[in-house]
């Protein structure tokens, strides 16, 4: 029979989880060259909501944990293809093409590139569900000098005590792929128009209109270059998920955060059960040291009602 048993209700456990959930923050950026275009992203995200359920099979389940994108800026860069005039037929051959054709002259000396940024932060929602078990680990304070006793470690500021740590150890993480608002289509079109207007801003209005007429609708051009097809939401989702692997990265990060980086609870070892106090015995040292008991074999499990921590003293 265990020397120590501590139980926490589901409500208490939920409070512990919410504390570490609210401390989770993610920032990341990356860029890639995909040949016809370049893409880069910059993101900042945190976690919100999520319902926690203790289950009878010694697992816990976290459902509908939202990834909130404080920022998810996707920047796309493309080369505008050669825009040339001329090339018309001077002497046609009836029903058989053209005998003499005018040479082409290109509007741009080089293919100009444009880039535009889609601020997707408010337009994307993502949800995670986690099935996990609870896990204890013993953490030796890496800053503690060799030979320092437990009392000096406790008195150090900051404390250099060792700890038992309690983690949520994810076994399965499921994620809903990016759900992207259909507003992103308008966002893309507006961004491209603005980028091209900016690129050609020094030209007279008719020349801008002419360049646009030659290249066709700007959004049509971009869709063609980016090979977007009919479904821009799916294209962006694939770009972020598959090409950049953002969700894989986030899942790994969350799993590592829960299982290794951020314990939901820490128990100092040896555990102080009585604090330091004045020594009432005359002639003895003025202070009596804290009373601490070493904890070993700490284990954790749960049923559908509570989390239970058990350990031995010694």
């Amino acid at each position: 029979m265990a020397h120590l048993t501590i139980a926490a209700s589901e409500k208490v456990f939920t409070g512990l989880f919410e504390a570490i959930r609210d401390n989770f923050q993610l920032t990341r950026s990356d860029s890639r060259d995909f040949g016809p275009f370049t893409a880069s992203y910059s993101l900042k995200a945190h976690l919100e909501d999520g319902s926690l359920d203790l289950r009878a099979d010694n697992t816990i389940q976290i459902k509908e944990l939202d990834i909130k994108w404080d920022k998810l800026d996707l920047t796309l860069g493309i080369d505008i293809p050669e825009i040339c005039v001329g090339g018309f037929c001077i002497i046609p051959i009836p029903f058989d093409g053209c005998l003499l054709r005018a040479p082409k002259i290109c509007v741009f000396s080089k293919d100009p590139d444009i880039s535009f940024t889609l601020p997707l932060g408010g337009l994307i929602t993502s949800e995670i569900s986690v099935t996990a078990s609870l896990l204890t680990k013993y953490a030796i304070n890496p800053n503690r000098p060799a030979g320092m006793n437990d009392w000096d470690a406790q008195d150090a500021n900051p404390s250099l005590a060792n700890h038992w740590q309690l983690f949520i150890d994810p076994k399965f993480l499921d994620v809903d792929l990016f759900d992207i608002s259909d507003m992103v289509g308008d966002l893309l079109e507006n961004a491209v128009d603005a980028a091209i207007d900016n690129l050609l801003g020094f030209l007279p209005g008719w020349a801008r209109d002419l360049v646009k007429a030659i290249i066709g609708s700007a959004i049509g051009l971009i869709r063609k270059i980016l090979d977007i097809g009919d479904d821009i939401q799916e294209w962006i989702s694939d770009l972020l998920n598959v090409s950049f692997g953002i969700l894989d990265f986030i899942l790994q990060l969350i799993a590592d955060y829960l299982a290794n980086k951020t314990p939901i609870q820490e128990i100092e070892d040896p555990y102080p059960i009585m604090p330091a106090d004045d020594n009432p015995n005359p002639g003895a040292p003025p202070k009596i040291v804290p009373v601490k008991i070493p904890i070993r074999d700490l284990k954790v499990y749960n049923d559908d009602k509570e989390m239970v921590i058990q350990g031995n003293v010694g």
Partner: peptide, 28 residues
Amino acid sequence: MKARVNLQLLKTAAIDSGALGVLSMVVH
């Protein structure tokens, strides 16, 4: 990259077969 436009294309005010410029040509 900023677009470098062939401004001669856009600023041709007069076209003359006897004084050829951009986008005008004679054939013989």
